[in-house]
Design a protein around this nucleic acid. Structure first.
Length: 433
RNA sequence: GUGGGCGUAGCUCAGUGGUAGAGCCCCGGGUUGUGAUCCCGGCCGUCGUGGGUUCGAUCCCCAUCGUCCACCCCA
């Protein structure tokens, strides 16, 4: 029988690493709540047209990276490649606009059919945050402040903030023409990628990593010099607020996002610790998107954070509190003691909420059971054999170094005894609860 | 989609043109009932898959799949 293969680029998160995810999720939940954001849950599948209209027909994501299929009813559906489109669709579908303001977030899997590499997967996870109904720039600043607070709480340090303004759709159109003129003048020196982009998305040429292109790129007109006056003052206010908040940033005039819906403020947190996939969290304002999806015109801004990438940074920093092992491990021998230990374990779990009580299952001699007890991380083992059962007691054996010698407690008073022992063992090191 | 590296035990990896090893893990013993150290023993392999060269291939060649990294793009 040949084994079933996992899907390329779709990873299992094993117990040995899932605790870092839990640390991230718990921290995110707490920080977002402290800024007044509410969680919302939306489907992982939407009509394909939603993404085409939101992200843009001619983006890489839509052109070649979507997991699309026709369902049994004949509808063309797509596994979401990003979250904003679905969140906005949900706001519209549920009549949440009407001039109201919403601060929303969600977390979950996204899907893009790309070639996997370091920090890039076909199923990956994002924390997605959206502020709908705010024209900014105050909300822009608060959103960025929120991300900055997140890094602090997560213990992530190797990240740097870049900001830029794309202006309005109209002002960008004018700039785009200037840019095309500039690159056409140097057409023979453009590389193949850049020539292709000249038609589709000339702004992306500014992002080129090709060293031969750097002087052409450097001499190109700069987006921030061609902003409309309103976008300019919006951006200046944002920058001033970031300075007020003490958040270091760099204006990167070449920061262009890959999705069509952005306008004005865009930002990106990048890291030098993750190889070539350096974007850890990025987003921007999308004032034009909602009417495009059939909602009434409503300004909005959002960002997405790559969970796998941030988890990698958390691992590097060693900032997640390691998982706690067992508190108590019950060792038994013989059927009657096992059955008594089962009842005792249940009683301990009831009496000591939050404690991790493990009963040795699957037999094994004492040596094996103590080995398992040791590896469970428990500071305390309880031993219940024929002997003890007959006398109505359990042996209480501390397992960690420097511990007091083994003792004994009546089964009937085991919960109180365990509680006391655990407190005593934790005491000198100031641990426990 | 393009390019390069790598596929040998559950894990980390040695190795040779004559069909394979170590450490860890797991199990048992040394202590008829006391772990983490130590000692002894045991379990574990279609050498990724298919084809070719050869008397003989895990090793050489081709293809294929998987994986990693990079390009592209992005979180």
């Amino acid at each position: 029988m040949t084994q079933i293969q996992p899907i390329r680029g779709m990873n299992d998160v094993l117990p040995s690493e899932v605790w870092r995810w839990q640390f991230l999720e718990a921290t995110v939940r707490e920080v977002l709540a402290s800024y007044g954001f509410d969680e919302m849950r939306v489907p992982v599948v939407e009509q394909t047209d939603l993404f085409k209209r939101a992200i843009g027909e001619y983006t890489d994501v839509v052109e070649k990276e979507m997991y699309s299929f026709v369902d049994q009813g004949g509808e063309t559906l797509t596994l979401r490649p990003e979250a904003t489109a679905g969140m906005v669709r949900a706001a519209i579908s549920n009549g949440m606009l009407r001039g109201a303001r919403h601060k929303l977030w969600c977390v979950g899997p996204m899907f893009r059919h790309e070639r996997p590499q370091k920090g890039r997967f076909r199923q990956f996870h994002q924390v997605d945050v959206e502020a709908i109904g705010f024209a900014g720039p105050d909300i822009d600043a608060e959103l960025i402040a929120l991300t900055s607070a997140l890094w602090q709480r997560l213990g992530v340090t190797r990240v740097a903030l870049q900001v830029n303004s794309l202006g309005t759709a109209e002002s960008r159109r004018g700039y785009r023409e200037l840019l095309v003129q500039h690159f056409r003048a140097h057409y023979e020196r453009l590389d193949a990628d850049s020539r292709r982009r000249l038609e589709g998305n000339p702004l992306r040429i500014l992002d080129s990593k090709n060293p031969d292109m750097q002087d052409i790129v450097a001499s190109a007109p700069v987006l921030t010099d061609h902003l409309d006056p309103e976008s300019r003052s919006h951006f200046e206010t944002l920058c001033a607020m970031l300075t007020d908040l003490g958040i270091p940033y760099r204006v990167n005039p070449r920061l262009v996002r890959g999705l069509d819906y952005y306008s004005r403020t865009v930002f990106e947190w990048v890291t030098d610790a993750l190889g070539s996939q350096d974007a850890v969290c990025s987003g921007g304002r999308y004032d034009g998107l909602i009417p495009q999806l059939g909602g009434e015109p409503t300004p909005a801004i959002g960002f997405a954070m790559g969970v796998e990438r941030v988890v990698a940074l958390i691992e590097l920093a060693g900032s997640a509190p390691p998982p706690r092992g067992a508190d108590v491990y019950l060792v038994t021998q013989g059927e009657a003691p096992l059955r008594a230990a089962m009842r005792l374990a249940d009683e301990l779990r009831r009496a000591l909420p939050g404690r991790r009580i493990e009963l040795n299952l699957g037999g094994g001699n004492f040596k094996a059971q103590f080995r398992r007890a040791d590896r469970s991380g428990a500071p305390l083992a309880l031993v219940l054999g024929e002997d003890e059962l007959a006398r109505g007691v359990v042996q209480v054996k501390p397992l960690r170094e420097g511990a007091p010698p083994q003792g004994e407690a009546p089964i009937a008073a085991a919960a109180a005894a365990v509680s006391e022992w655990l407190a005593r063992l934790a005491g000198p090191r100031g641990e426990g609860s």
